[in-house]
Simulated assay, not measured.
Amino acid sequence: MPIWNCGGCDLPWPCPTRKRELRAEYADAPVSLALYLGSYLVQATEDMPCTPAGVLHRRFLGWTREADRSTPAVQHRSTATMPATWHRDEPEQPV
């Protein structure tokens, strides 16, 4: 691991094959995937101290967001407002 290359193809880890495997394995758990890869990012920064942090971030974590580009990262609430309280003598307002 100190050189962080794939044992099968000798490309930088995670290689394209491992990325596909990780996406499939963590398809329903993207936060778990990020935590898993984040732990490897920490180890890699110790093993490769001269590598810029941005390069390592893209390599270990940046690719995980590429598949999610079609869906928004944050779901926004409706902007409709409701009165804080409703009194019986006030007419009911449509929602």
Rank of each mutant, 00 (worst) to 15 (best):
M1C: 14
M1D: 15
P2W: 05
P2G: 10
I3L: 10
I3W: 03
N5S: 09
C6F: 09
G7Q: 15
G7P: 14
G8Q: 09
C9K: 01
D10W: 03
P12K: 08
P12R: 11
P14R: 01
P14N: 02
P14S: 01
C15H: 01
P16Q: 10
T17A: 12
T17R: 08
R18M: 12
K19H: 01
K19Q: 14
R20C: 00
E21P: 00
E21V: 07
R23L: 15
A24F: 01
A24E: 08
A24H: 04
D28E: 10
D28Q: 10
D28T: 08
D28G: 07
A29Y: 04
A29L: 04
P30I: 02
V31A: 14
V31E: 13
V31P: 00
V31F: 09
S32N: 09
L33A: 06
A34F: 07
Y36E: 12
G38E: 08
S39Y: 10
S39A: 15
S39I: 06
L41H: 09
V42T: 15
V42C: 14
Q43V: 08
Q43A: 15
Q43G: 09
A44S: 13
A44I: 06
A44R: 13
T45L: 09
E46F: 12
E46H: 14
D47K: 06
D47I: 03
D47R: 04
M48D: 09
P49H: 13
P49N: 13
C50L: 11
T51D: 09
P52H: 11
P52T: 05
A53W: 07
V55L: 12
L56F: 05
R58S: 06
F60L: 11
F60Y: 11
L61K: 00
L61C: 06
G62V: 01
T64H: 06
T64A: 09
R65D: 05
E66K: 02
D68P: 00
D68G: 05
R69D: 10
S70M: 04
P72K: 11
A73M: 02
V74H: 14
Q75V: 13
Q75H: 09
H76D: 06
H76I: 03
R77P: 01
S78N: 09
S78P: 00
S78Q: 02
T79W: 03
A80K: 14
T81E: 11
M82T: 11
M82E: 08
M82N: 04
P83A: 09
P83D: 07
A84F: 05
A84I: 06
A84Y: 03
W86N: 05
W86A: 07
W86I: 06
H87Y: 10
H87K: 13
R88F: 07
D89M: 11
D89N: 13
P91I: 05
P91Y: 05
P91T: 05
E92V: 12
E92W: 06
E92K: 08
Q93K: 12
V95M: 15
V95K: 14
